[in-house]
Design a binder for these strands. Sequence first.
RNA 1: GUGGCCGUAGCUCAACUGGUUAGAGCAUCGGGUUGUGAUCCCGAAGGCUGGGGGUUCGAGUCCCCUCGGUCACCCCA
Length: 430
Amino acid sequence: MSSTSSARQKFQALPGTRDLLSPTSERMRALVNTFADEAERAGFGQIVSPMFEDLGVFTRLGESTDVVTKELYDFEDNGGRRIALRPEFTASVCRAYAQERPLTPWKAWYAGPAFRQEKAQKGRYRQFDQVGAEVIGSHDPDLDTELVALADRFYRRLGLRSVTLLLNTLGDAADRPRYLDALRAHFNANLDALTEQSRITLEKNPLRVLDSKRPPDAELIAAAPVITDFLSVEAGAAFERVQQGLTALEVPFTLAPRLVRGLDYYTRTTFEFAGTGLEAAQNAVGGGGRYDGLVADLGGPEDPGVGFALGVDRTLMACDADGVFDAPNPTVDVWIVAVTDGTEGLELAEELRRAGVSVDRAFDGRSMKAQMKAANRSGAPLAVIVGEDELAADSVSLRPMRRADGHSGSEQTVIPRDQMVTRVKELLAR
RNA sequence: GUGGCCGUAGCUCAACUGGUUAGAGCAUCGGGUUGUGAUCCCGAAGGCUGGGGGUUCGAGUCCCCUCGGUCACCCCA
């Protein structure tokens, strides 16, 4: 498509990005507001961090994670800095912690877009939104429990039912090598039963082989050794504590001893929320866990962290599957019908808005009939009408609008114009 | 990134095996006399059939390229 052609180029949103228009955008905002409310009720404060960081902040996330090795949006800025758009929030939160050194335990929540260069499909966008919460500076496993409980409360408040919590632990850094050895031994002993993909993965990160959904691998994975047999006393006790806590709080969970997560930084508790009403490809609606070494990897102190992130779009998809958390339909309280050719519509609308009433109206000098239609369609419960008669008498007509089921409201009345605001407010209060 | 499927008015879809001015519903706009919505009636507008090229007397229908979407793999939120 040449820019010199006579027809102007028609642009569209890039693959994996989209526009969210009114009811959908408000639905998303409502979801974020709900999350913010739950998080702040639990003592979390919001962090707003940059959408791009030094590339190094993200490459610390792991050499065998696709998120950093092939999906990062990275570029060089004018000063030659290597920059990347955030593919997730945890690394930025840790970097911020190392930089700002807030009091511990530091509890932060966030909401916003993240970026990943993948081939897009439904529930999988290049720019996608997450909400999440992190706690840095404490080893207490009760924080793991609290975090999971926060997500659980959030889901409940949305009305979501078809989400299951999968729980696992990845042990401590010291436990990992022994488990990895056992995994390697197990898979290497049955190498020809593995798919080629998995053999490659095995070289890079044996843990990740557990993630394979390829049918031929299933049998071998099911027979693979389990991390819980390799836990240190401390890690084992912590995991035990988390399970007891969740049970006490009546947060249902399913132990998933072969659950591994996409990022390499996880230690100890890891969990994932699976939307049972969703296609397998996008059923991971959220996940998180401990990352006790990440802050130090980013040049900070040896402080531990826990957190989770939830995919906003996938959560909404799960809501749809449950027929829950509908999009709000925002309406205005008053619709102004002005058929004078003057500025009454403009002025009345402003007067009401300054008085705190939500108002809209028609433009382009449309007929009264057309304006009444628009008023009706808007869903506004009240129409303020001004025509030649009202104008001459310095008055306005107030017409209660009724929905489909007939006239159940009061009659239309004519009132002095200077009483409009008070009378409108009275009518709306009923 | 690899592969399969799909792409017709704003939206949801039609158009027999390629054949005359590509249709409908909903939505939009106007009208049904003199200033009043929802129902009803009438009418209008709206598409170079995603874009480009090719085959053919003739293409929305076939072929190629391209751009989107979608599904699977991969991966993940």
